[in-house]
Design a protein around this nucleic acid. Sequence first.
DNA 1: GGTGAAATACTTTTCGT
DNA 2: ACGAAAAGTATTTCACC
Lengths: 181, 181
Amino acid sequence: MPRIGKPGGRRLAEAGAAGGRPRGGAGAGRFFAVEAIDRAILTALSGDGRLSYTDLAERVGLSVSAVHQRVRRLEQRGVIKGYAARIDYEAIGLPLTAFVAIRPIDPAAPDDAPERLSGLPEIESCYSVAGEDFYLLLVRVKSPSDLERLLQEIRTAVNVTTRTTVVLSTPYEGRAAPVGR
Amino acid sequence: MPRIGKPGGRRLAEAGAAGGRPRGGAGAGRFFAVEAIDRAILTALSGDGRLSYTDLAERVGLSVSAVHQRVRRLEQRGVIKGYAARIDYEAIGLPLTAFVAIRPIDPAAPDDAPERLSGLPEIESCYSVAGEDFYLLLVRVKSPSDLERLLQEIRTAVNVTTRTTVVLSTPYEGRAAPVGR
DNA sequence: GGTGAAATACTTTTCGT
DNA sequence: ACGAAAAGTATTTCACC
C-alpha cells in the first residue's frame, strides 16, 4: 500500500518533543518514552494530517525512518483511522448545521437506526447517547427547508420523533485530540 | 533548510485568475461544470485527505496540473481549511465522549465562553446553538472522573450550568460532506 | 481555463548497520 | 533507531489549445 503524500511540510511553531528521550543505546526503549513519542506524532498529525515524515521527524526528534515506522504501525493498529480534508461547510453551500436528537415512537421496536440512516449523506455523525434520547445526529444542510425535508426523511426512515437544535455559529470544531493527558 | 528554489520546492505560488470562466476551446464556459469538478475534488479529499494529485486527477477526470491548480485555489480561498488525521479515540486512551450543553447563570453577563474555554484541550468542538442552551461542547476524556473534573473546570471558567449527555457508542462520525447536493 | 511534457526538488520506501 | 540510496511524487515552467 503506497502511502502518497505531497511535499508540503507545514512549518508551524515548535511544539517540543515530549520529555526526555533516551539517546544512544539501541534498544533502550522504555515504555514511557515510546508512548510519549507516539502521542507527539498523533498530536502533530491531528493538527496537520499532511505533515511529511521529514517535518514529523523534526518535530518529534526522531529520524525519518523511525517516524515512518511508527506512523505505519499506528495506521495498521487502527489508531490512525485515516486522513481527511477539513472543509468549510459554509463555503461549499452547506451553511446550516444542526443537531437532531431522535427518540423511537415505539421503544420496543428493534433498534437499527444507524443503519437505516446511514444512507442520508446529510448526516455527518451519529452518536448513541445516554438519556432520554436514543441518538444524536450532526447534520449539514443548505437551508431551513432542506433541514425540514431531512427531518421528514429521518422520521420516515426510522419511526422516531425528532428534536432539533440549530447551530448558530461554530467558534471551533474538530480541534486536535488531547493525546496524552 | 533553505528551499526557496524555483522548481520542486513547495511553498508559495501566485493565485492567478480568481473568478473567470473558461474561454474558448474545450471549456465551453459552463459555470456548472466547473463547480462540479471542485465538488468532486472536495468529496474525494474529504474521504481521503492524502490522495495524491495523480490519483485525484484520475478520479475527477482532469489533468494533474489542472487538479493541482484547483486544489491550491480551494486551499487559498479557505474552502479547504486543512487536513487532519482521523484518530481512534478509544485507542489513545480517551474512550469517553460526551456532549456538554452550557447555559450562563447570569444571562446578562458578557458572553466570551468560547475564548475562555478554548484553553481546555478536552473540548474538541464548540457550537453556539439556538434554544435554551447557549453552547454545545463535544468533549473527549479518559474516564468518568476526568469528565467530572472537566465539568468543574468549565463551570469555573465561565460561570455556567452544565447539562451533560454521555455518548455510549459512535456508529459513525465525520463522514464525507455531501458536497454537491 | 485546460492540456501535456520536461526539469528539479522533495518525500516515501527499503535496506544495511 | 539510524543513515543512505532507490523509487515515486509534487511543484513549477513553458508552449499551445
